[in-house]
Design a protein around this nucleic acid. Structure first.
Lengths: 204, 204
DNA sequence: TTGCCTAACAATCGATCGTTTGATTTGTGG
DNA sequence: CCACAAATCAAACGATCGATTGTTAGGCAA
């Protein structure tokens, strides 16, 4: 799905390099300094362009944000789906593969993806906010289906499990430092945490 | 610990009501619209004060933020320590009590606490950023001690467990809607999730 | 060559930002 | 009632914000 008027009716020819540069610069700044903390002038300076020129490519700062967010969701979703497709048929293996790809995307250098977190989304109000949430819901629905495949004891809160797992993964953004464990390792250990539990005397 | 010059040398008489009003208004706005998204004028309007008058109570917007953050950390920490003290001696019960109090504080109406999340902290740069992180680390250290008491099989990653649990709890801020399960219930179920695990065929 | 389209520049708009300054009100002790 | 300090008002400062406008230089097609 494409939010329409996201690009200027130009056909999908490969020639829109500056537009991609703008998206990438905006993504980096939005994810590090926040949306309000980033000015059009900051973005223009990075790509070597005058502030006004940005409005040829995007008709407003909000539209630029929507485009960045859309791109971020798209990148993460593609990475996750591709990883799951490569995994075996076991539902836990597939969920683990998804978690690994999810976290790797979020911590990747290029940094489109951090914008995907709903924490980022929270601050906006409602025309814009709904747009971003809708983009993201499409992605989270994929995790719903992955969790649904899990053979869990009846009565288990699948929704809470999904939210808790994604919370653990997404929260990694706030404490991860490069040089530590690889993201995929962290993701796998987290899934195992939920799967096997910690208390040797559990279930009493 | 008090960051010094946080108040204007006025003794701890109870009479600084407007200051508290300012702190509360700022907390609500900071946590919903973000720091950059909140203007001094917005805060002044809420408490019925002209923008310039705020500078009688706080010498800069940054100092106001630090004071709000300090207050937020303090409130959560006190709620958690009080809850743990009331709990029994069992380490898992104590951790559960902490998780419940933590999440209840974060979702409380008054809304000082959401500012405590490091997600919020991330956007600032370094003189300010370090101050906020230091305030928060003091709080997280308390969870380190709670997890240390847990009787876990040797070789378990206590650090990852703590981060994963706090991630699940903190992430609740992004999806919780009033009218659903009570925060304490959510917190308890999350701790149980980590404690007992989900896979009936686990440990293979 | 002519004509159009893309992409950017140069300059500037009104609004809003954090902050400062100096006068003025309000409350309180002598 | 007066003096003095605490608290707020009133007004404005320079800077920066997102956005608009008019123009121009290059590329490609007819």
């Amino acid at each position: 799905m494409m939010t329409a008027a996201t690009n200027r009716g130009k056909s999908a020819r490969g020639g829109d390099n500056r537009r991609r540069e703008l998206l990438e610069a905006a993504a980096r700044l939005f994810s590090t300094r926040g949306y309000e903390g980033t000015s059009i002038r900051d973005i223009a300076a990075i790509v070597g362009m005058l502030p006004g020129s940005i409005y040829y490519h995007f008709k407003s700062k909000e539209e630029l944000l929507v485009a960045v967010h859309e791109q971020g969701v798209l990148q993460v979703m593609q990475a996750v789906e591709s990883a799951v497709d490569k995994a075996g048929p076991d539902p836990w293996d597939r969920l683990t593969a998804a978690a690994e790809a999810h976290l790797e995307s979020l911590l990747a250098e290029n940094a489109f993806s951090p914008v995907v977190t709903p924490q980022f989304t929270k601050a906006f109000d409602d025309p814009l906010r709904s747009t971003l949430i809708a983009q993201r819901d499409e992605y989270e629905a994929y995790f719903v289906s992955l969790v649904k495949q899990l053979p869990l004891p009846p009565g288990t809160g699948r929704r809470l499990f999904r939210l808790a797992l994604l919370g653990s993964l997404n929260w990694t953004l706030t404490w991860y430092r490069p040089g530590g464990k690889r993201p995929a390792t962290i993701a796998r250990q987290m899934v195992d945490l939920f799967r096997t539990g910690l208390d040797p005397a559990a279930g009493t």
